[in-house]
Amino acid sequence: MKTLDDVLKNKIHGIYYGKRILLPFAANFLKIVVEDDVISDFSDSTESGVIIEEKENFTNIYFLEYKKINEAVGKFKGIKILLAEKDKDIFDFANHRKLVLYLREEHVVEIEELDKEIIFID
């Protein structure tokens, strides 16, 4: 599994299909913001509408409430994520990273560290 730093440094993309996003790293997710949905319930219950599955080389995120996740976010607005990288101390706030996923054409997910100008209250 790639580290998050590798992914950001080498600009490695994720992919998306329908309601599913595949990210090339593993992490402990704390909060996801899609449109007005602020999601922090990642328990097994599907009430929050999000399921996260960690695979050997990537992480699956299913957005159950959306038929096509790319239609939910605009060109200049991505999906914001607050997470702690796998194997890092989740209780240390210094390890909390803010990312934004831009869903581009041809199923490409651009992964960027959140610009400090973009507001994301964690």
Partner: peptide, 12 residues
């Protein structure tokens, strides 16, 4: 475009 991105501009 960079301003639109910083403002997360969206027609929503």
């Amino acid at each position: 475009q960079s301003i639109l991105k910083s403002n997360e501009f969206d027609f929503g």
